[in-house]
Simulated scan of single mutants.
Amino acid sequence: MWRHIASNAVTFLILGLFLLGGVILWGRGQYDAPGPLAQAICLQVERGSNMRAVGNNLAAQEAVSSAMVFRLGAEYEEKTQALKAGSFLIQPESSMKEIVDTVTRGGASTCGTEVVYRIGINQISTQVRELDPATSKYVERVEFTPGVDELPEIYTQTKANADTRYRIAVAEGVTSWQIVEAMKSIDLLDGTVAAVPAEGTLAPDSYEATKGQDRNTILALMQAVQEQRLAEAWEARDPGLPIETPQEMLILASIIEKETGVPEERRQVASVFINRLNQGMRLQTDPTVIYGITKGEGVLGRGLRRSELRAATPFNTYVIDALPPTPIANPGRASLMAAAQPAEEDYVFFVADGTGGHAFAQTLEEHNRNVAAWRVIEAERGAAAAGNASTGGD
Rank of each mutant, 00 (worst) to 15 (best):
I5H: 12
N8C: 14
V10K: 06
G22H: 06
L25T: 01
W26I: 00
Q30R: 07
P34S: 04
P34T: 04
A38C: 06
I41E: 05
V45G: 10
N57S: 08
A63I: 01
S66C: 11
E78D: 13
M96G: 00
T102H: 05
S109C: 11
T110H: 04
I119S: 14
T135K: 14
K137H: 15
E143R: 10
E153F: 01
T156M: 14
T158H: 04
Y166H: 07
Y166C: 08
A182F: 08
D205P: 08
T217I: 13
L219T: 06
M222I: 08
V225T: 12
Q228V: 01
R229F: 09
E232A: 15
R237F: 02
G240H: 10
A253Y: 02
S254G: 11
I255E: 01
E259K: 03
V262E: 13
P263D: 13
Q268I: 12
P287E: 04
Y291R: 10
G296H: 02
G296I: 03
G303Y: 00
S307I: 05
E308Y: 05
A312D: 11
V319Q: 12
A322L: 00
A322S: 06
I328S: 08
P331K: 06
S335C: 01
M337V: 04
A340P: 06
D346Q: 12
A352I: 00
G356I: 07
H358G: 00
N368C: 08
N370R: 10
N370S: 11
E378F: 13
E380W: 01
G382Y: 13
N388Y: 02
